[in-house]
Computed example of a mutant assay.
Amino acid sequence: MKYFSFQEFERSETAYRHGIDNTAPESARKNIAVLVDKVLDPLREAWGKPISVTSGYRCSELNAKVPGASRTSQHMTGEAADISVGNQVDNRRLAQKILDLKLPFDQIINEHDWQWVHVSYRDGHNRHEMLKTVPGGYVKISAL
């Protein structure tokens, strides 16, 4: 983990507001480290500038407080991160960079017209799905 820390993945204003301990257990920390090593660090290296984790690990109690969060969210296992580089145009470019670099991923999600990028990685069995948010959920897309 060259460019990211566990603290970035555990930080949450929602958890803080609700007094929730969002410390990742060892199993989630292992998944976070794999996500960072396989996807986020190589992406950051190629991007050449900082990438912010806007939402990383979420314990089940925190996940339940996040509007629209899936009850089976990969955030709860440390397999997903919502990332941003500050604006919609560059967030879309960031997602495209994952594809251009042929980085392994389970899902890339265009969240709310590139407000942020959801990226996940499951060790050994990735679906390579690309999705975007729509009212009431997600739809699969074939290109970003």
Score class of each variant (00 low, 15 high):
64 A>H: 03
47 W>Q: 09
124 G>C: 03
115 Q>T: 07
107 Q>K: 15
46 A>T: 11
1 M>C: 13
72 T>M: 07
17 R>W: 06
90 D>N: 09
104 P>V: 09
23 T>A: 08
34 V>H: 08
88 Q>Y: 05
15 A>I: 07
123 D>W: 14
140 K>W: 01
84 S>P: 05
98 I>L: 11
108 I>V: 13
103 L>I: 12
137 G>E: 01
114 W>Y: 15
92 R>T: 00
117 V>D: 01
107 Q>S: 12
63 N>K: 04
93 R>L: 12
130 M>W: 04
112 H>C: 06
87 N>C: 01
111 E>G: 06
26 E>S: 03
101 L>W: 08
81 A>C: 07
38 K>M: 14
106 D>P: 00
75 H>L: 04
65 K>F: 00
79 E>F: 00
71 R>E: 15
112 H>N: 14
119 V>M: 01
44 R>E: 10
132 K>S: 09
64 A>E: 07
43 L>A: 12
31 N>T: 13
123 D>I: 12
19 G>N: 11
21 D>I: 02
79 E>Q: 05
139 V>K: 15
33 A>K: 07
51 I>N: 04
129 E>F: 13
98 I>C: 11
92 R>D: 02
32 I>L: 06
78 G>T: 06
125 H>L: 02
23 T>D: 04
49 K>N: 11
115 Q>D: 10
64 A>F: 00
115 Q>I: 12
54 T>Q: 08
73 S>E: 11
143 A>S: 13
23 T>R: 11
16 Y>W: 04
102 K>A: 07
101 L>S: 09
41 D>M: 08
71 R>F: 05
26 E>P: 12
136 G>F: 06
2 K>R: 15
20 I>H: 10
68 G>N: 02
52 S>P: 09
121 Y>D: 12
102 K>F: 05
96 Q>M: 13
91 N>L: 12
68 G>D: 01
90 D>E: 15
65 K>C: 03
133 T>P: 08
